[in-house]
């Protein structure tokens, strides 16, 4: 059984965000980049399945050259192959543009299960799983916290508001990983050494059948026109706590009369 895992290489959640000079992107100078945490759950589940049933695990990203570091990390954890669709020098792509490029690359790969994170940390669009499933004409389940294998398919447990949906689907299919699915492993020294020797297949968008002039920059279906720091919150109003009863009464009064939320 063959697996493809989509990897987003994103700013570390701890990174301080500075707005770039153009006022619509981030200043990337001091940004530390990481493999998006949900993608680690996706990769782990794919590797576990390969260990149990054989096959290959290929990691794919759409991004600039720096993303090779993230792909190598995935190889070190146990992925067999890596593909990067190079976005170097291109304008920004929106989710649909990224999905079209990824779909182009994935069509050429052996794939029984396509794995993604449920959302890319930072941009948090949470759109890629259904978009890729649609472009590839596959069934999908997103926000999956538990997965079981059946004869020719999977049972996915999907977290929704106040309930859990149990989804049955046949292979090939798309799975979006949520926290809880597994505990991702660290890369071993042996894995790191082996990863160094592997080559990352770098493809141009044209190689996977997309024309960046039609899907990026001014032509992207969604444009970020401005990026700014969010408006600052008002300074906290501290309530003295010497007498818990009085403090509680005062808080209730403020919530009712000032904030008007009670």
């Amino acid at each position: 059984m063959n697996h493809v895992v989509c990897i987003a290489y994103v700013p570390d959640t701890e990174t301080k965000i500075k707005i770039g000079a153009d006022g619509r992107s981030i200043d990337e100078a001091d940004v530390k980049w990481i493999v998006s945490p949900y993608d680690e759950y996706a990769l782990e589940e794919a590797i576990k399945a390969r260990e149990a049933k054989g096959g290959t695990v290929t990691v794919v990203t759409y991004g600039p050259a720096r993303a090779d570091v993230g792909l190598r990390e995935c190889l070190a954890r146990g992925a067999d192959e890596a593909v990067r669709i190079a976005s170097d020098g291109l304008g920004e792509a929106d989710s649909l543009g990224v999905a079209q490029a990824l779909a182009g690359a994935i069509r050429a790969l052996p794939c029984d299960v396509l794995w993604l994170g449920n959302k890319g940390v930072g941009t948090d669009a949470q759109t890629m799983v259904p978009m890729l499933a649609e472009l590839l004409d596959l069934p999908h389940a997103n926000l999956v916290t538990k997965l079981e294998w059946t004869d020719g398919g999977v049972v996915a447990y999907r977290e929704i508001e106040g309930a859990r949906e149990v989804v049955e689907m046949p292979l090939p299919c798309v799975v979006g990983a949520q926290k809880g699915l597994n505990e991702p492993r660290y890369s071993s020294l042996k894995g790191i050494m082996a990863a160094k020797k592997k080559t990352i297949a770098v493809k141009k968008p044209a190689d996977v059948g997309v024309d960046p002039a039609a899907t990026t920059g001014e032509k992207a279906a969604v444009r970020w026109t401005k990026l700014e720091l969010p408006p600052a919150r008002q300074a906290v109003k501290l309530i003295p706590a010497d007498d818990p009863g009085k403090a509680a009464d005062e808080l209730v009064r403020l919530l009712r009369d000032e904030a008007k939320v009670l």
Binding site: S95, L96, A125, T127, M128, P130, M131, A133, V222
Partner: peptide, 17 residues
């Protein structure tokens, strides 16, 4: 967030998420 992106991809249009 499951339905809207599938529609967007089917119709090849963008989505403000």
């Amino acid at each position: 967030k499951d339905v809207a992106p599938r529609l967007a991809a089917r119709r090849k249009v963008g989505l403000l998420s």
